[in-house]
Amino acid sequence: MHRFANPGRFLRLAGAVLPWLWATALAVTAWGTAWALLYAPADWQQGETVRIMYVHVPMAWLAMGGYLGLGILSVMSLIWRHPLADLAARELAPVGAAVTALCLATGSLWGKPMWGTWWVWDARLTSVLVLFFLWLGHAALVRAFDETERGARAGAILALVGLVNLPVVKFSVDWWNTLHQPASVTRLDAPGMHVDMLYPLLVCAIGFSLLFGAIVLARTRSAVMERRIRALEMARARRADRPLAAAPATLAGD
């Protein structure tokens, strides 16, 4: 991993992977969305409203999986202190906050016709809202310091503390009595939905996951390039200041 974490190697690898990743992500997402909206059957109870599931469920998975990735990057940052892990975590946080916001918004749209209300303070919804605030807190904290290293350290500590919330999000429907339905796809015995709905859901999840990865990779690549350009500009500015600093002494000697 250290070999690929080298900024130069990362830029070359990301530059080669990104076009293929974007193309695959857009193709799979278009395929899954068309399958879900046009060909997947309506639910016998929820009717056409169930189609919100094809966005809501992948967003929920990405919100939790992305935060787990943020925790892994935070461990790498605190132990090995590699700046690429800091940059990746910094660029991941806004994307994670966006998918968590989409999860909450689509959940509210789905909850209104099913529960009769946009929001209830049950364990699953509240813990996902806490997850959204953790994403926002990390994104704000790493940008709150003039020294980027201090911001990265503070953000990493916050991300690791926030990992405690992930089991609460996952198992809240099992630990407490909530309006939110229990897991129907990740059950150990068998999925709780028909394959005509399960397969397009999985394709949508793969497509959105690839898009998520492409966005984070592109943002991280841009951040690495921006930091290298800034470092070059600072080096040029220092070189330009040296003759100016020596000029008065030369003139005085003359």
Score class of each variant (00 low, 15 high):
Leu84Cys: 00
Gly69Ile: 02
Tyr54Trp: 06
Ser77Glu: 14
Tyr39Val: 01
Gly71Phe: 02
Leu37Ser: 01
Met76Ile: 15
Trp44Phe: 06
Tyr67Glu: 01
Leu87Glu: 09
Arg81His: 09
Pro58Asn: 05
Ala40Glu: 09
Leu73Val: 09
Ile79Asn: 13
His82Tyr: 00
Tyr54Val: 03
Arg51Thr: 07
Pro41Ile: 03
Ala60Arg: 10
His82Phe: 00
Gly69Trp: 00
Arg81Ala: 09
Gly69Lys: 06
Asp43Arg: 00
Leu68Thr: 13
Asp86Phe: 06
Trp61His: 14
Asp43Ile: 01
Leu38Lys: 14
Ile72Phe: 11
Leu38Met: 15
Leu62Phe: 09
Val50Ser: 08
Ile52Phe: 15
His82Lys: 09
Tyr54His: 03
Asp86Lys: 11
Ala63Cys: 04
Gly71Tyr: 00
Gly71Asp: 05
Ser77Pro: 07
Val75Lys: 13
Val55Met: 08
His56Met: 04
Ala63Gly: 12
Val75Met: 14
Ile79Val: 15
Leu87Gln: 11
Gly65Met: 03
Gly47Trp: 01
Leu70Cys: 12
Asp86Tyr: 06
Arg81Pro: 02
Val57Tyr: 05
Leu38Thr: 11
Leu62Pro: 11
Gln45Thr: 13
Met64Ile: 13
Met64Lys: 10
Ile79Ala: 15
Met53Arg: 01
Val75Arg: 11
Ile52Arg: 08
Gln46Leu: 15
Asp43Glu: 10
Leu87Pro: 03
Glu48Phe: 08
Met76Asp: 14
Pro83Asn: 04
His56Gln: 03
Val50Ile: 14
Leu37Pro: 00
Met53Ser: 08
Tyr39Lys: 02
Met59Glu: 07
Val55Ala: 08
Ile52Gly: 04
Val57Ala: 06
Leu73Gln: 13
Ala36Asp: 05
Ala63Leu: 03
His56Ala: 04
Val50His: 08
Val55Phe: 13
His56Val: 05
Leu78Gly: 07
Arg51Ser: 01
Asp86His: 10
Ile72Gln: 11
Tyr39Met: 03
Leu84Thr: 05
Pro41His: 02
Val55Gln: 09
Ser77His: 15
Leu78Asn: 05
His56Gly: 01
Tyr54Pro: 07
Gly69His: 06
Trp61Gly: 10
Met76Leu: 15
Val57Asn: 04
Gly66Arg: 02
Ile52Ala: 12
Ser77Thr: 15
Leu70Thr: 06
Pro83Gln: 07
Tyr39Gly: 04
Ala40Ile: 00
Leu62Asn: 13
Gln45His: 14
Gly69Tyr: 01
Gln45Trp: 10
Pro58Gln: 07
Ala85Asn: 13
Tyr39Ala: 14
Ile79His: 12
Glu48Cys: 00
Arg81Gly: 10
Gln46Lys: 12
Gly71Met: 05
Tyr54Glu: 08
Glu48Tyr: 03
Ala85Arg: 10
Ala85Phe: 10
Met53Val: 12
Val75Gln: 12
Leu73Thr: 12
Leu84Trp: 05
Ala36Ser: 12
Gly47Glu: 04
Gly47Val: 05
His82Val: 03
Ala60Gln: 08
Val55Lys: 07
Met59Phe: 08
Arg81Tyr: 01
Leu70Ala: 14
Leu70Gln: 13
Leu73Gly: 15
Leu87Ile: 13
Leu37Val: 04
Ile72Cys: 11
Tyr54Cys: 10
Tyr54Ser: 06
Gln45Arg: 15
Ile52Pro: 11
Gly47His: 02
Gly47Ser: 07
Asp43Tyr: 02
Gly66Cys: 08
